[in-house]
Write a protein that binds this DNA or RNA. Structure first.
Lengths: 176, 176
DNA sequence: ACACCTATCTACATGTATATAGATTAAATT
DNA sequence: AATTTAATCTATATACATGTAGATAGGTGT
């Protein structure tokens, strides 16, 4: 298995999270990985294919993280708090959520990416709904929507104001 | 006063809200307004100057809207609901909040824009805090932060899922 | 040894992006 | 009428961006 492809994804992920998918080029990517920019086309024929791979990778990551939390023997409340930490980690590296970023750039990434973004947020919301149900909340579905909204918005503000604590403050009332 | 400058700002505002500030060029802008792209430099020397003008304009718009709501003889609750409508209007045009968009693209817009984005969100939050205080909420400050977070996040999701109602659902519990 | 595959390279094509210099036009001022 | 200012234009510079074509070098399997 090609290590280069993996490296390209890692660097592209970081660049998307920091500068946006329209904020870097194949040349930026190539220089960081140490190959020629034309060689990237071997791994990702067009830039949109890179975008698709990035969203799928991020989605898979999230599914794995959520499945791990499901397996672990802790309360739903602690599961949710762990998920918050998962996202909060972005802030100290001045990153934003990759799927949130692409959702902002929605009109430029094409329908295939859009479809996968919808799936990403649907899965995130579904998992949260399950946790809220386990906590006995009648409004689990709406609460999950409120949570995802507040999460994405607070990640934006936290990075802007350089205050990771903003994320916890914005989500605090939804957990208990 | 130059009408062209105003037109440029209007088109640039829409393009930023739909495609992101890095998602359009001076050429796109020029073609829509009907001048040559080099002529834009007369009005906005560099693209960053356009970005600054856009954020300031959006900020002024918001301050005016909030001042109008303060003047009008309605309850704080209705004032907040009116503000929600103000932002919700973006969705049916497939737009996202201009300042939210630039906050996502933060690492590419430069420190001058960043400073103005911080000011924009500070004023929005301060106004909301005032309304929540008028409603007798002890946690007015935190609540305002939660509101802004949920607002920005829900605008992102509402556009992605083409469901304007998402905004109201995400903010509902914070008003009452 | 030969054919094939993987991953990269060089070289190029085409178009875009931001920006500058200097000419031109038209309106406003003296 | 002459001068100045505002706004736009043409033409150009420089750099970047995405992508294609074809060559190359090294490894794999028969």
């Amino acid at each position: 298995m090609s290590d280069t492809r993996e490296q390209l994804l890692e660097v592209a992920e970081r660049l998307t999270q920091t500068k946006g998918f329209n904020g870097f080029s194949y040349l930026d990517l190539a220089e960081e990985v140490g190959i020629k920019n034309s060689s990237i086309h071997y791994h990702f024929k067009a830039k949109v294919d890179l975008a698709i791979a990035l969203v799928e990778r991020t989605h898979d990551d999230l599914l794995t993280a959520m499945a791990d939390l499901d397996k672990s023997n802790i309360t739903p409340e602690k599961r949710i708090k762990s998920l918050i930490s998962y996202f909060q980690g972005y802030i100290k590296e001045e990153k934003y959520c990759l799927c949130g970023m692409m959702a902002a750039e929605l009109q430029t990434v094409g329908p295939k990416v859009k479809k996968r973004l919808v799936a990403y947020f649907a899965d995130l919301q579904a998992w949260l709904e399950k946790q809220f149900k386990a906590l006995g909340h009648k409004d689990a579905k709406v609460r999950a929507l409120q949570f995802v909204s507040a999460l994405e918005g607070s990640l934006l503000l936290a990075r802007l104001e350089n205050k990771p604590s903003v994320v916890g403050q914005a989500l605090g009332n939804l957990i208990k």
